[in-house]
Simulated scan of single mutants.
Amino acid sequence: MRFWGLKTCDTCKKAQKALADAGNTLEVVDVRADGVAPADLARFYAAFGDAIVNKRSTTWRGLNEAERAGDPVALIAANPTLMKRPVVEMGDQMTLGWDAKARAVWGA
């Protein structure tokens, strides 16, 4: 199971713990330290569309209108912390965020 998040994000910490407690082995990608591979970012955008951009983040609030109107994939590539997290993937299943729906998918 692959997990994209931030090691400092409380939601990501909760998700990692719940997934591990449910018996999953995680391959964790820290989006700030490790970055997000362009192919992964393209897949995330294809799956989730504009929802992949965390518009409640401090980084988002610091952008000007022209930057916000730009290509979401390029924006996240330049500012990885703009990506909503966590993204969890195993096989052909992929979830965004850590809401009740995501927890149900992963049995956590």
Results as ranks from 00 to 15, higher is better:
residue 26 L to A: 12
residue 63 L to H: 05
residue 40 D to R: 08
residue 23 G to F: 08
residue 21 D to A: 14
residue 14 K to R: 15
residue 86 P to T: 06
residue 68 R to E: 04
residue 88 V to S: 01
residue 13 K to S: 15
residue 67 E to K: 03
residue 28 V to N: 09
residue 31 V to A: 06
residue 71 D to S: 01
residue 20 A to R: 14
residue 12 C to K: 06
residue 46 A to Q: 12
residue 80 P to H: 00
residue 89 E to C: 01
residue 88 V to D: 03
residue 57 S to M: 04
residue 12 C to W: 05
residue 79 N to D: 03
residue 24 N to V: 13
residue 64 N to Q: 02
residue 79 N to V: 05
residue 42 A to R: 14
residue 56 R to M: 12
residue 59 T to E: 08
residue 60 W to P: 10
residue 65 E to G: 05
residue 25 T to L: 13
residue 46 A to G: 14
residue 64 N to G: 13
residue 40 D to Q: 14
residue 74 A to V: 00
residue 10 D to E: 13
residue 67 E to W: 00
residue 22 A to Q: 07
residue 10 D to H: 11
residue 37 A to L: 13
residue 35 G to C: 12
residue 17 K to R: 14
residue 10 D to F: 04
residue 39 A to C: 07
residue 15 A to P: 11
residue 84 K to G: 02
residue 7 K to V: 15
residue 63 L to R: 09
residue 71 D to N: 07
residue 11 T to G: 04
residue 71 D to C: 00
residue 87 V to P: 03
residue 51 A to S: 12
residue 79 N to P: 02
residue 8 T to Y: 03
residue 28 V to S: 10
residue 89 E to F: 01
residue 44 F to C: 13
residue 26 L to H: 11
residue 66 A to R: 09
residue 68 R to L: 03
residue 77 A to L: 04
residue 16 Q to H: 08
residue 39 A to R: 04
residue 23 G to T: 08
residue 88 V to Q: 03
residue 57 S to T: 10
residue 39 A to E: 15
residue 69 A to V: 02
residue 42 A to I: 10
residue 18 A to G: 08
residue 33 A to M: 12
residue 22 A to L: 06
residue 15 A to W: 05
residue 58 T to M: 03
residue 39 A to T: 14
residue 7 K to R: 15
residue 29 V to T: 15
residue 63 L to S: 07
residue 40 D to W: 09
residue 69 A to Q: 03
residue 15 A to V: 12
residue 36 V to Y: 05
residue 51 A to M: 03
residue 76 I to D: 00
residue 31 V to F: 08
residue 54 N to H: 11
residue 20 A to S: 14
residue 30 D to P: 11
residue 35 G to V: 13
residue 37 A to N: 12
residue 53 V to H: 02
residue 22 A to F: 06
residue 34 D to F: 10
residue 33 A to F: 03
residue 87 V to A: 04
residue 68 R to H: 02
residue 14 K to G: 14
residue 13 K to P: 13
residue 73 V to N: 00
residue 52 I to L: 15
residue 41 L to Q: 08
residue 80 P to N: 00
residue 84 K to M: 10
residue 44 F to M: 15
residue 47 A to L: 09
residue 30 D to A: 12
residue 12 C to P: 09
residue 71 D to A: 01
residue 20 A to T: 15
residue 75 L to R: 05
residue 15 A to D: 10
residue 78 A to K: 12
residue 42 A to L: 08
residue 87 V to Y: 01
residue 28 V to A: 10
residue 86 P to W: 00
residue 8 T to H: 09
residue 64 N to E: 08
residue 40 D to F: 06
residue 71 D to W: 02
residue 82 L to G: 03
residue 64 N to V: 07
residue 77 A to T: 05
residue 70 G to N: 02
residue 40 D to G: 06
residue 35 G to A: 09
residue 19 L to M: 11
residue 24 N to E: 14
residue 34 D to K: 10
residue 16 Q to I: 08
residue 31 V to P: 08
residue 52 I to W: 11
residue 48 F to R: 07
